[in-house]
Amino acid sequence: MIDIAAAAVDLGGVRVVDDVDLHVPVGTWTMLIGPNGAGKTTLLRAVAGLVDHAGTVRVDGVDLAALGARARARLLALVPQDPLLPPEMTVSEYTLLGRTAHLGFLGRTGARDAEVVRESLVRLGLLGLADRALGSMSGGERQRAVLARALAQQAPVLLLDEPTTSLDVGRQQDVLDLVATLQTERGLTVLGAMHDLTLAGQYADRLALIDGGRVIAHGRPDQVLLEPLIAHHYRARVRVENVDGAPVVLPARAASPR
């Protein structure tokens, strides 16, 4: 579904993404993992068409470089790392922004748009909050509003950039459960970036470890979440335990002499 070939991005003369090839099959979920500054977000932004890049990104065989913003928005929905939420905008108005690429001449909203917005709000349990201002909502609710907006885009590909930062562990699971449900229900293809390795491994079908702008390892979570790999690339002391068949990455404090 998503085919990234020889992607490279230079930012301010520094090569941030370097010759990345990555294939995300239709209906699957791939999480990019890697240390700060590894190039995860930049790779996602390149896929979303927000930074200039070398190489090609294809979705469903279509080269994204050939598409305008509107056509691209019908293929890819982005949940950004730090969304700008106008505090006075209501949840339903915000969700309707997801319909931008579908609206008619001069931004006319049709019955179909209203229906999709309503469906998205229902799906994310936000219908009761439809007329609430974004500025008055909790972090978890806002993240659901951002997901509702992305859902209203009705794009087959969902890009998630650190969707769970600043959420407590319960809200993190809420958001990831929702994405997992949507992935199965609607056959979405998901490409995300995430810092929590255990959660990434529990939800994604595949992980891609990125460091220095390159893909270091790519495969099932148990093939990527390996102690020596994580320890080396994150320069971290970790233990990886197998809990109920899934890898759990535990940070370990260095033994201190007493």
Binding site: S92, R118, L127, G128, A130, L134, M137, S138
Partner: peptide, 24 residues
């Protein structure tokens, strides 16, 4: 627009009240 006030926690579970989606 980014300066959103510190959010106050509110109950997240709301019944599907069938409230009309605000028209645009």
């Amino acid at each position: 627009d980014a300066t959103s006030p510190k959010a106050t926690a509110v109950p997240t579970t709301q019944p599907d009240s069938g409230a009309p989606v605000a028209s645009r």
